[in-house]
Every structure is written in C-alpha cells, then in structure tokens.
Design a protein around this nucleic acid. Structure first.
Length: 236
DNA sequence: AAATTGTCCAACCGCCTAGGG
DNA sequence: TCCCTAGGCGGTTGGACAATT
C-alpha cells in the first residue's frame, strides 16, 4: 500500500493565517527543521494541511526572505529568465535569492506584464506585439555530448549536453533553491543518471548566456529521461 | 461620505512526478 | 510492476486595501 492521506480536510483551518499559527509553525521548524510536512501540523499543534504549512513557510515565514520592492536589476533578471524558461517560476526564483516563486509570479502578473505591454512587447513571446511571425517554444532534446549554441536578438544561449557522474546530491526529483545555491545545477533523483540544469546568466542589457547541461541515454524510457529541455527563443 | 472600480498578493486548487509499500 | 500518496509546481481565486467617481 501507499502512504496514508496527508490531512483530514474536515478538521483543518483554511484562509488567512493568524499570528499564533505563524508562531507555532516558526517555533516548530526552528526546533525540528523543515520537512515531514504531512506530520508537521499535528506535531506543531496546527489545524492545517501539511501543504498549507509548507506554503506558508516557504512564501512568508522563511527568515531568508527578502521583503520589499523588486529592484530594476531583479526586473531585468526576471524578464530575461522568463524569455528563456517561460512560466517556470521556481527556476526563476532559484536565481533570485530571497524571492519566492509565488512572489515572482504575482509580480510578473501585476507589474512586468503591464510594463512589457506598455512598451508594445508581448509578455508571452517577448516579441513586439505587431510582429506576426510568432516563434513558439524552441524544444531542445539533449543527446549525449551534443552542444548547441543559439543566438538571440539581444542575448546568446549555449545549450550543451554531457554525461555526469553520480554524486547523490538531491533526492527531491525537482529543483530546489538549495540545489541551485550549492551547485548551480538541478538534479533528478535517479541515482544512476540525472539531468542538470545549469543556468549561467550574465546580466546586462546587451548580452547573456545560459548553459543547459543534460545527461541521459536516448534509449531510456523513464518519463524524466524523456524530459525536454525547453527554452523560449524570442527570435532566431 | 458612500459606492464603485482597480490593484495586490496570500492562499487555495488541481495536476504531475517520484517514491513507498 | 502496480497502486497510492507526499511533495512540488503553476494557475487561479478572493479578500483587503487604495483610488476614483
């Protein structure tokens, strides 16, 4: 059998968190660390779903969060990364220390979208709105030791795939801030192979580069091995 | 001053993938 | 290998507050 349900929905609170709930959650995580979200609410004496606790911690209570307005530099990073990755808010957040994916998503939808539109730029394609030659997502399927370099109108992207040895760095199966912080890479959980996403972004108006490193056998059939590395190209 | 409209953002919802049994 | 769940993600919602009429 699988695991038991994460929470009893009938006995959980919803809506805004109270100060007392926040304090309980902070105290608990200070003493026990993050993780085990399923059992956390009960252990911490909270009538909340584990998912809700995790979200509250990640998006609001984490001590390393940077509050306040986004800087112009952060704006530029977000716009550039969005032009490359699309709505991959967690990946974008990984390059902006102290910012959460939810925060960036909200900021994108409320500020940057409007800013781009006011400049006549389509926020999805990052191309002039009048330009009818829309370029869809460019899909890049990594095969071993391939290297591909793309040139954009205002930045360059180099895509390279290569083998990598096992170092057991991550167990989550998805990209974490910690992964990105430690190695500038994101890992999949399979111990024998992994796909790494390594973003080396040079900031500035004129140029930038992104390196996507992937590893895996083309004969492999597991879903994540079929994962496509996609980059949104504004224009070739 | 009250009503209406607009904006922001915290929180929820539903889906997907990896992992446990 | 299959079934089921936890964790994580992106999309969406709704309440609080501000601005406008």
């Amino acid at each position: 059998m699988g695991r038991s349900p994460c929470c009893e929905k009938a006995h959980t609170n919803k809506g805004a968190w109270t100060k007392e709930e926040d304090q309980r959650l902070v105290d608990y995580i200070r003493n026990h660390g993050e993780g085990c979200w399923r059992s956390l609410p009960k252990s911490a004496g909270l009538l909340r779903c584990g998912k809700s606790c995790r979200l509250r911690w990640i998006n609001y209570l984490r001590p390393d969060l940077k509050r306040g307005n986004f800087t112009d530099e952060e704006d530029q990073i977000i716009i550039k990364l969005h032009s490359l990755l699309g709505n991959k808010w967690s990946l974008i957040a990984g390059r902006l220390p102290g910012r959460t994916d939810n925060e960036i998503k909200n900021y994108w939808n409320t500020h940057i979208k409007r800013k781009l539109l006011s400049h006549g730029i389509d926020p999805q394609t990052h191309r002039p709105i009048n330009d009818s030659k829309t370029v869809p997502f460019q899909t890049v399927v990594p095969s071993q030791n391939d290297a591909v370099e793309y040139s954009f109108s205002n930045l360059a992207v180099k895509l390279k795939t290569e083998n990598s040895s096992d170092n057991g760095a991550s167990t989550s199966g998805t990209t974490t801030d910690e992964d990105l912080r430690q190695n500038g890479e994101c890992y999949n959980s399979d111990n024998s192979r992994k796909i790494e996403l390594n973003l080396d972004l040079t900031l500035g108006f004129g140029s930038g580069s992104v390196r996507v490193v992937g590893a895996g056998s083309s004969a492999d059939s597991k879903p994540w091995r079929d994962q496509l590395m996609t980059a949104r190209l504004s224009q070739l």
